[in-house]
Amino acid sequence: MEITQIQHGDLLVVNLNGRLDAHTAKSFEERLIPLIDQGNKRILADFSKLDYISSAGLRVLLMAARKLDDAGGKIALCGLKTPIKTVFDIAGFSSIFPIFSSRQEAITDFTK
């Protein structure tokens, strides 16, 4: 899995490319959590190039959401492919993460 990041004002966009499973979740965690510890309060995870997510991947997102919650921050997601949206719906994660269809829509909402 490939992880890149780009800053949009005070919004940090993290792009995920590939599969977020038990094997790759660890590297995602090691990348994402320090970003929060460094003080980033608004994070958008762009899933438009993500093909698969397992419960290990969900756990990292949950960890980030809890940390940001404590810090008064927020994490949102965008570009979820249908199978990934289904996983989010089944696990009930759609109700705890703001989900946008596109990055532009998310950026507009975040910078309101």
Binding site: L58, L62, D89, A91, G92, F93, S95, I96
Partner: peptide, 8 residues
């Protein structure tokens, strides 16, 4: 539509 347990 319920959330996984232990999350929130």
């Amino acid at each position: 539509g319920g959330l996984v347990l232990g999350a929130m």
